[in-house]
Design a protein around this nucleic acid. Structure first.
Lengths: 127, 127
DNA sequence: ATTAAGTACCTTGCAACGCATAGTACTAAA
DNA sequence: TTTAGTACTATGCGTTGCAAGGTACTTAAT
């Protein structure tokens, strides 16, 4: 048995919690970003701030590639707008396809929450 | 502009729904598996079946490495048990650390659901 | 005895994604 | 002209879900 492929150490569960929370966030970001853009056009830094308000911390290295992906898929458009206090801002906007897609995402999200909660509940009955 | 790094095509939102749902599931599997094991020891095939009951489809190629990871981190233990209808089964069991970790995961999950739902709700007010 | 079918576990290689890091560029004040 | 603040972009790494293929044990049929 080689031990070269596994960096996991038996470090107890406590230190892993932050990592796990990060993991759980995966894939939900799309939904949140599209939801934010439903409120109105926004530029990346603004999006990051709004996510922070709801305890979802996202960094630039995550957001920018994701926005580009969503744009390339036709879910988002953008326009440049001058700023009086710095470089120009890239305002992203939901397309019609994006809005339609967001509705599907919301449905998927609701189903997921339901499925996971069911699993959790079953466990709680059998302690 | 090179088009070599991007496999996304503007295919509309509809076909992407399955992919997005898969993405959203990421990271939540740990929580679900540990929750199932809280109900009692179980072997992989059994775990897959139980997940299927709650609409969370997971395949072997996903589950086995994940169980190994959880075992290596000390969250799970296992024992072999004979079967009258096939090869022996590997029953996994929550360790004490695993139970403690599960509680943290459940908390993280609840917080995530809350944060995401808040974001979604804000969007719905501004249509 | 050999084959087939059912059950169960395991490995390998790929692709996607989040993120840390580093870099570029514009404005304004010191 | 240097410093600070704001904003967008690119690169490379590690983790993870998954498809695909493989091994092995049991029972029943040929």
């Amino acid at each position: 048995m080689g031990n070269s492929e596994n960096t996991d150490k038996p470090d107890g569960g406590v230190e892993r919690a932050a990592t796990a929370q990060a993991q759980m966030r995966k894939g939900v970001l799309e939904l949140c970003i599209l939801s934010i853009l439903l409120q109105g056009d926004a530029y990346p830094t603004e999006i990051i701030d709004k996510l922070k308000d709801t305890k979802l911390v996202v960094v630039e290295g995550t957001l920018y590639p994701l926005l580009t992906r969503l744009k390339n898929t036709g879910l988002l458009g953008y326009r440049w707008e001058e700023s009086t206090s710095g470089p120009p801002r890239k305002y992203y906007k939901l397309t019609e396809i994006g809005e339609q897609y967001l509705k599907e995402l919301q449905l998927s999200w609701a189903e997921l929450v339901d499925a996971v909660n069911k699993t959790i509940e079953k466990g709680k009955n059998n302690i």
